[in-house]
Design a protein around this nucleic acid. Structure first.
Length: 193
DNA sequence: TTCAACCATATTC
DNA sequence: GAATATGGTTGAA
């Protein structure tokens, strides 16, 4: 278990080895709300938020969710913690400087992925980086491709600033939820600061 | 613009 | 275990 910090938010990441077994009997509660980038789906376990998705549609998000937790049961149910997440984005949209308290996060990932995500959290707001940069931070510039893969499986969109990572030439390449979504996130962030 | 390596996973056999 | 496919890449040809 490691911890990363960004803008005062505290994020707890759990190693996948602690998850593999419990994944089978877990119930994941999810609900949706409108984010500055369109519909958003937030899912949580009894420990904390495990996913924040920004798919094209709710149905797509649910499918995505199920594929990430093939052994778990999904349940549409609004939890208090979901409201926390929604409030967080509302504050962002309002340009509020005071961030909400960190809502607990419960992520699963391999050690490598966790290192990548943690590196992402160190990117200053409204700044961008490249896959090569992240790789270098991890100790080996050649890891860029792997970094792409790790970022691609980022469970919590926006919170982990995957959208701030661009191609080495500065261009925006692919994005799990569509390049447009990535652009709007960057635009929103540049404006909200 | 095209292509072939590069790295970590997930999947499948 | 080994082979294969697949990513939000890169750098050289």
């Amino acid at each position: 278990m490691i911890q990363g910090k960004t803008s005062g938010r505290k994020i707890t990441v759990t190693n996948s080895s602690e998850y593999k077994k419990v994944g089978a009997d877990m119930v994941i509660a999810y609900s949706t709300f409108k984010s500055p980038f369109g519909t958003c789906l937030v899912a949580s376990t009894d420990k904390g938020v495990c996913n924040i998705l920004f798919g094209a549609s709710i149905a797509a998000d649910i499918a995505d969710l199920q594929s990430r937790w093939p052994l778990s049961k999904l349940m549409k149910k609004h939890q208090p913690i979901h409201a926390e997440v929604e409030a967080y984005f509302k504050d962002l949209a309002a340009g509020s400087k005071t961030r909400r308290n960190a809502f607990p996060m419960h992520l699963k990932g391999t050690d490598f992925q966790i290192r990548v995500w943690k590196a992402l959290l160190t990117i200053p707001g409204a700044k961008t980086s490249t896959y090569g940069d992240i790789a270098k931070k991890l100790g080996d510039p050649k890891l860029s491709r792997a970094v792409g893969g790790a970022i691609g499986s980022n469970p919590v969109g926006y919170i982990i600033p995957c959208h701030r990572v661009l191609k080495s030439d500065g261009g925006i390449s692919g994005f799990h939820w569509g390049v447009e979504k990535k652009k709007s996130m960057l635009a929103f962030e540049a404006e909200a600061k």
